[in-house]
Write a protein that binds this DNA or RNA. Structure first.
Ligand SMILES: [Mn+2]
Ligand SMILES: [Mn+2]
Ligand SMILES: [Zn+2]
Ligand SMILES: [Zn+2]
Lengths: 137, 137
DNA sequence: ACGATAACAGTAATCTTTACTGAATTATGG
DNA sequence: CCATAATTCAGTAAAGATTACTGTTATCGT
């Protein structure tokens, strides 16, 4: 009788490696495109499944950012993010900011506050130049 | 030739009124259920369209919270939110906290930082008691 | 190498959101 | 009031994102 064990498959290894390589905080679909160059037969479901697995096991970060599509980060060191209000792109804040204190925070209907972070809104360079060029949105 | 004008239709009024009445930060779909009790023929598309319209015109807040489904708030006064990490429910933080300063924040690939807020993670009472009762998730 | 089974590819289903279309409302002026 | 044009509506289709299912493959302790 074997314990529940975790296997490092080729797919999982490549997904993790490519996510750690990029600084772009990709969506599952974007990472799928990247990984497919090395594993042409991988399926999108596999990418989703492994991103969930890796996030749950703490090897990557699932970004709790706004927007409809989830994004992931291979860098699990403590740092903040900026999100482009136009396109959803995410960037890393250089200066390390302390996590906001959680003690004494009261919320009706909530029994515990377990963490906090600062979320920045910004405009990425791509969106900025696109707007300045006159094209709407 | 008439200018673009904004009409307060019955549908829009009911959506706004019900959103202001609740403290639950509902999703479009949840608000759809609520509004349908007064307007049984309203469609989900109308709810989405009007929530977007009302948010763009500043009458309500579109919550920039994590999770797959967008949520809305009829209370546009400055306040913070906690998000249940298990179910996505959102609660209001009682004590007013200042917005984090934005000056001097540098982000590679971003041309401007336009705002910031603190995001709290928590566990709502419903999820807490469900877990304590032993039922997983 | 073998065998149990975790993980796979492929695909269907679900959930969320947006886009489109013709009909109904609304403001406005004669 | 009624005509007219602009706007918003309901209904529905389509798109986009994520999860679930199923039979097959491949990993890893032995
Ligand atoms: Mn990052
Ligand atoms: Mn609120
Ligand atoms: Zn952008
Ligand atoms: Zn909860």
């Amino acid at each position: 009788m074997a314990q529940a064990q975790t296997r490092m498959t080729r797919q999982r290894a490549v997904i993790l490696e490519e996510l750690r390589k990029t600084k772009s905080h990709p969506t599952a679909d974007e990472l799928y495109s990247i990984v497919r160059e090395r594993l042409p037969h991988i399926s999108l479901g596999t990418v989703y499944r492994n991103l969930d697995f890796l996030a749950d096991s703490g090897e990557i970060r699932r970004l709790e950012a706004a927007g409809s599509t989830k994004r992931f980060d291979g860098d699990i060191s403590w740092h903040q993010h900026v999100r482009c209000v136009h396109c959803g792109r995410i960037g890393d804040v250089m200066q390390p900011l302390a996590a906001p204190p959680v003690d004494g925070i009261q919320v009706c209907g909530f029994s515990a506050i377990v963490g906090a972070r600062i979320e920045f809104d910004g405009v990425c360079e791509a969106c900025a130049s696109r707007r300045e060029a006159g094209q709407q949105n």
